[in-house]
């Protein structure tokens, strides 16, 4: 494969993944509001265009035209760095997610994954933990006690739940014997999905994913009632938009990650019946996105069902329940693997 071709299709792929995650994040805001409305017997926004489909554009436009306020006492460099970092890390994780089986075009095999690095899972974790800095820096640079409290809450929450998240994933990695996301997905061929082997692991993982993305019921960092908005209290205009947007991108990416690691990614039952490789690839992508949308829906469904946790409950759940549970899960998995190999 020539270098030019390689660079060309990677560029296209990167642009597409980036554009699609932005688009989905944008429309996730509309979906969220619609769903919130529907779950509360309302209709949600329906004024901007049919069914309100222009609402996200209007919201984005509005954020651009809002006055941009940088507080006098803030550290300006860090104040701007905060949301940029949040956005940057949110967009980066999608690089290792395999979006579908390989395509065959012009005599080349084109993997629908930006980078198949052999430590994909570790990469995701590394980038996700970088996300804490966006929140922390933003909250600290605002020079506002509410922001700082929100940031402290956010960082301690993220760090605590990252532990349980990582531990719950170790059981999966023990089974797959690989850190590459692509390989994990390939091993779940057909309906051989990890969730059937690791239900407890999946449960722990999804709970931690809620906490990692700062979504309800773990949205303590930005609880409006106590902290005036949390770490982004001082933010306005598009910088606030970046923070809010990063949350939706994170939601999309963690849905994609969950679908890939636990729900078989692009695999679906009876996929061997389809002989045409390209058709299979396209169907695979469609199935994968259906799974992603399902998880985004679950994210929102949970948000509009459950009330917020209290801070001590949150910490207790993380440290005293989820971490021991995931350790037990690891032990069980280890025992099962040992029995199988006997």
């Amino acid at each position: 494969m020539s270098t030019i071709f390689f660079l060309g299709y990677k560029t296209i792929l990167v642009t597409m993944v980036w554009g699609i995650s932005l688009l989905i994040a944008m429309y996730a805001t509309l979906m969220e509001r619609k769903l919130a409305g529907f779950l509360q017997d309302r209709l949600g926004p329906d004024r901007a265009g049919p069914f309100g489909i222009f609402q996200p554009l209007m919201d984005g436009g509005k954020l651009f035209f809002k006055e941009e306020i940088i507080p006098n006492d803030s550290n300006k460099f860090l104040f701007i760095l905060g949301p940029s970092l949040a956005m940057f890390t949110a967009c980066m994780t999608s690089a290792v997610i395999p979006w579908g089986p390989d395509l065959n075009l012009f005599g080349h095999t084109i993997p629908l994954q930006i980078a198949d690095i052999n430590i994909g899972v570790l990469f995701v974790f590394g980038v996700v933990s970088l996300g804490v800095y966006g929140v922390m820096i933003g909250g600290w640079a605002s020079n506002n006690k509410y922001s700082l409290l929100g940031a402290v809450r956010a960082s301690s929450q993220m760090i605590s739940y990252e532990l349980a998240m990582g531990l719950s994933l170790i059981a999966v990695l023990m089974m797959s014997q690989s850190l590459s996301v692509k390989e994990i997905v390939q091993q779940q061929h057909g309906i051989n999905w990890n969730v059937f082997y690791q239900p407890l692991g999946f449960l722990i993982f999804i709970i931690c994913a809620f906490a990692e993305t700062n979504r309800a019921p773990f949205d303590l960092p930005e609880c409006e009632a106590e902290l005036v908005g949390g770490y982004h209290t001082e933010y306005s205009s598009m910088k606030l938009g970046f923070y809010l947007f990063a949350e939706y991108i994170n939601m999309f990416v963690s849905s994609a990650f969950m679908a890939a690691v636990f729900f078989g990614g692009y695999n679906f039952p009876f996929m061997d019946k389809i002989a045409n490789g390209n058709l299979l690839a396209i169907l695979g992508v469609a199935v994968f996105f259906a799974k992603i949308f399902f998880f985004i829906f679950v994210f929102m469904w949970v948000r509009w069902t459950l009330p917020r946790f209290r801070y001590d409950q949150l910490m207790k759940l993380g440290w005293q329940i989820l971490i021991p549970l995931s350790v037990i899960n690891i032990l069980l998995t280890g025992g099962a693997i040992m029995l199988k190999n006997l």
Binding site: G37, L39, Q40, D41, W304
Partner: peptide
């Protein structure tokens, strides 16, 4: 909550 999704608005 999911039941409310299908209720009359």
């Amino acid at each position: 909550t999911i039941k409310h999704l299908f209720k009359k608005k």
